[in-house]
Amino acid sequence: MPEMRFTVRWPDGTVDDCYSPSLVIKDYLAVGGSYAVDDFVRRSRDALHIASERVRAKYGFACSSALDQLARIERKAERFEGGQVGVERFAE
């Protein structure tokens, strides 16, 4: 299963490298895109749940790494009220 990393810049300027076990993240986020924090979380949640389910379909269990990544995104997003999250790059 092709996995990938995606790099995002938060409203405070910090940068995080994030993980997806599937390329589906490309259907929800675009390099150079800027998303309101709530929208970024929603898109990430949708994509990472789909990615985790693809792992389940192939291997018989959900992807804990995808769900852990989602939890980190959700926790970090709680620090921001408003602002934009920028997607800086994808690495396959």
Rank of each mutant, 00 (worst) to 15 (best):
V37Y: 01
H49R: 12
S20Y: 11
G83Y: 13
A51Q: 04
P2E: 15
D16M: 06
I50P: 01
R43A: 01
G13R: 10
D39G: 07
I25G: 02
A47K: 07
R79W: 08
G60Q: 04
P11T: 09
V55W: 01
F61L: 08
F40Q: 02
V24W: 00
Y19P: 00
T14F: 00
R72Y: 12
D12I: 01
A77N: 06
D39A: 08
E81R: 15
V15Q: 01
A30S: 14
S64F: 11
D27Y: 09
F90Y: 04
M1E: 14
A62S: 07
E3G: 13
V37D: 02
S22Q: 00
Y35H: 05
D46S: 10
L29Y: 07
R56K: 12
F80C: 01
V15N: 00
V31I: 12
D38R: 08
L70C: 06
D39L: 14
A51M: 02
A62D: 11
C63V: 04
E81W: 14
R79V: 02
S64K: 10
R9V: 05
R5E: 15
D39S: 08
A30V: 15
G83R: 09
V15W: 00
R43V: 03
L70S: 04
W10I: 09
M1S: 15
C18E: 11
D46C: 05
R43S: 02
V37R: 02
S22W: 03
Y28V: 07
P21S: 13
T7M: 11
R43W: 09
V24D: 06
I25F: 00
R42I: 07
V87R: 03
A66N: 03
M1D: 14
S65A: 13
P11K: 08
G60I: 02
R75T: 06
R75N: 10
D17L: 11
H49K: 09
K26N: 11
R75D: 10
K76I: 05
I73M: 06
I25M: 15
I73E: 01
L67E: 12
C63P: 03
E92A: 12
A91E: 15
H49F: 13
A66Y: 00
D27M: 12
G33W: 12
S44I: 08
C63R: 03
Y59W: 13
E3A: 14
E92Y: 07
V24N: 06
V24A: 04
S44P: 04
P21L: 01
E74W: 10
V55T: 10
V24Y: 06
G83L: 08
Q84D: 08
D12C: 09
C63Y: 05
R56W: 07
A30K: 15
R45K: 13
C18K: 08
V8R: 03
G60F: 08
A77V: 03
E92S: 11
C63I: 00
M1H: 15
Y19K: 04
E53R: 12
A36T: 00
I25A: 05
E88S: 09
D27G: 14
M1P: 13
V87W: 06
R79T: 05
V87S: 08
T14I: 05
F6Q: 05
A36N: 05
H49T: 07
S34H: 13
S64G: 10
P11E: 08
D68Y: 13
D16S: 09
I25D: 03
E92V: 07
K26P: 05
A51H: 02
G33V: 12
S65H: 08
R45H: 12
